[in-house]
Write a protein that binds this DNA or RNA. Sequence first.
DNA 1: ACCCTACTCGTACTAAGTACGATCGTCAAG
DNA 2: CTTGACGATCGTACTTAGTACGAGTAGGGT
Lengths: 226, 226
Amino acid sequence: MTAAPTASGRTDGPLTKERVLRGGLALADRIGIEPFTIRRLAAELGVKPMTIYHHVAGKEAIIDGMVDLVFAEIDLPPTDLDWRSAMQHRCRSARAVLRHHPWAPPLMESRTTPSPHTLRHHEAVLACFREAGFSLALTAHAYAIVDSYVYGFALQEAHLPFHGGEAIGDLAEAIVAPLPADEYPRLIELTRDHVLQPGYDFGDSFELGLDLLLDGLAAAASAAPA
Amino acid sequence: MTAAPTASGRTDGPLTKERVLRGGLALADRIGIEPFTIRRLAAELGVKPMTIYHHVAGKEAIIDGMVDLVFAEIDLPPTDLDWRSAMQHRCRSARAVLRHHPWAPPLMESRTTPSPHTLRHHEAVLACFREAGFSLALTAHAYAIVDSYVYGFALQEAHLPFHGGEAIGDLAEAIVAPLPADEYPRLIELTRDHVLQPGYDFGDSFELGLDLLLDGLAAAASAAPA
DNA sequence: ACCCTACTCGTACTAAGTACGATCGTCAAG
DNA sequence: CTTGACGATCGTACTTAGTACGAGTAGGGT
């Protein structure tokens, strides 16, 4: 057992599971999940590939651990707010976190072995709904609906080749330009007259959709309370 | 020699791009996208691996083509319905299609080279909103929001190890049983008293969430028309 | 008969995951 | 100080996968 794993920002010393996972997170953030390999992670950590296998069971275990670290970054719904504000905070946090880990969204729902932070997160979200008076059935619906939206939005955002409303022109232009204008008029119209206009930001849609869902859930909850 | 070269009964004739893609679709539906390999696809098609490369550019091109086939299966919003019914129909169709191709959701948004059916689909969706009087800005929002929800829901559904409300018990039980009851009370409560109850179906949440979004968009559209 | 073209495939190179066993640093017991 | 045990590290090599290269083969047109 490795002693003294206390320091969080330590870069030297013996390799630990912690350092493997944090290194993996940094590497995936930098190069994405597809070219993420054990060999590259080993290079990132300054060790040889097989060294890693003495701290984790394999690549899958590394991915599992990295996903759990991502869940750990997402704020839980604050317990001192009304449920709507709390969920809004949690969903905004999730989106912000997932923007920094674009590789994560497709993986977060595909892990079948639950990890501690993941479980704690789900527990807190469920508690938020239940303590607001949501029935079990409505809680299950709300849980599925809100997560679908947040992950789906994050998934789309992750695959956009631009961020924050700049540098969008190149790609959108490159995609739309060669299209026959008479075949895809709406697509071209939207791109040229809206997406390519200054100030456009795909992410602006997030708040609107989240508001629609939370408003709708609030109405459903008051229509059929516990 | 071109006729029936192999013993196992499969469609004969020379290999075509069409047959490669359809075979890939069938293979991915059967085994998933992770173990999907050129060699396995070749075996599925009754051919040697390198033969495939004379019909498609590479594995990426195969995935692109398969994703486009999936888009082709999704109904376009019918033009003879009001926009809300049309979008509802399109979204239900999308969900139904994606349930048959659980590997597809994470890939459908990551293709940067648009294919014909994909473009036609997006064009039709945009036309549905625009012809209903949605402004460009609201159309962009609606497009992002609805797709986030549909893909996110499909993504979750794809990773559930059960379908249609049966056989859920084994896994849910196996996951929840070893959890400390005092640490995750809400999680256990929801699982035991709702998810494991007869008649529960995760997919039932889809309609509710879709209704909330479409209702909200309708309100937004009438509040701020063209 | 001859060649052109399309189609198929054998061989082999590269990259990646990882099992096996050797090496090495460290430290307690003698 | 020596010794031996143990955990961390790594060299080597096996396996699977994508795919480049070029050889064989079958029809079809001249």
